[in-house]
């Protein structure tokens, strides 16, 4: 009887020599391996995201090569000031995100929450500015569809630029909105005291997602706003 119990315990906990860690799932050897698996999985997901956005970047590249003049005309109708400000806002949110992840790793609960709240606030500012820009595009009839009107030459080609503009920035904005949802969950978990120096993987991989969305914008900004601005 005694012997069977001992065997059962050994099967349940193959690494009984190490201290039992509540955050460690039984299929991982140790915390480092568990953390490594989570990071790797997130990067694998981000690789699929690169290709998800990649299709739109490929379409953009092709039409820009085909219609450089129209793309330049259409690009100049975008508000470069708002675009630059939004780039700065998003980069700042990446800093606050990085600081939130750091605070989680050092076990600073309040700093983690502050970082997440600032990141979310900057995310909302970004979406607000994006909303103002979308509003301007609607007012100028630059939204593709029956009501589309473009002052420059080849309006049908300009419509392609604006289709790509709305598809790319729209997909990016959708990622921002999802990111805000993820951050709300992270904030709740941090508030509940779920994270510690030992285990804070959710904040870390959510941070990877947030930085990825920032990187997409880093490419969207020059491609959409900075085509032949000097003319």
């Amino acid at each position: 009887m005694h012997r069977e119990d001992a065997i059962g315990a050994a099967v349940d906990h193959p690494s009984t020599a190490t201290l039992h860690e509540p955050e460690l799932k039984h299929h991982f050897d140790d915390m480092a391996q568990q953390r490594e698996a989570a990071t790797l999985g997130m990067w694998l997901f981000l690789a699929t995201e690169v290709l998800f956005f990649g299709g739109l970047f490929a379409a953009y590249m092709l039409y820009r090569v085909w219609y450089p003049g129209t793309f330049a005309d259409a690009s100049r109708s975008l508000d470069i000031t708002l675009g630059t400000i939004n780039t700065a806002v998003l980069i700042t949110s990446s800093l606050t995100m990085a600081l939130a992840v750091r605070a989680a790793a050092t076990g600073e609960r309040r700093a983690t929450m502050t970082g997440i709240v600032l990141t979310m606030a900057l995310g909302v500012v970004f979406l607000g500015i994006k909303g103002v820009e979308y509003y301007e595009k609607f007012a100028e009839h630059h939204v593709p569809g029956p009501g589309f009107h473009f002052e420059g030459q080849a309006p049908e080609r300009a419509q392609l630029f604006f289709s790509l503009y709305f598809a790319m920035t729209g997909l990016h904005a959708l990622h921002m909105i999802i990111g805000l949802g993820i951050m709300a969950v992270m904030l709740y978990m941090a508030w509940r005291g779920a994270f510690s120096r030992r285990w804070h993987t959710p904040v870390e991989i959510s941070g990877l997602y947030w930085h990825f969305v920032d990187i997409v914008w880093i490419f969207l900004f020059p491609l959409l706003y900075l085509v032949d601005r000097h003319k």
């Binding site: 990067w43 690789a47 690169v50 290709l51 990649g54």
Partner: peptide
Amino acid sequence: SRLTMVVAGSAIFWL
């Protein structure tokens, strides 16, 4: 880790 770098690098490669 190297493995994570390879996965991230593969994203650029496929793109």
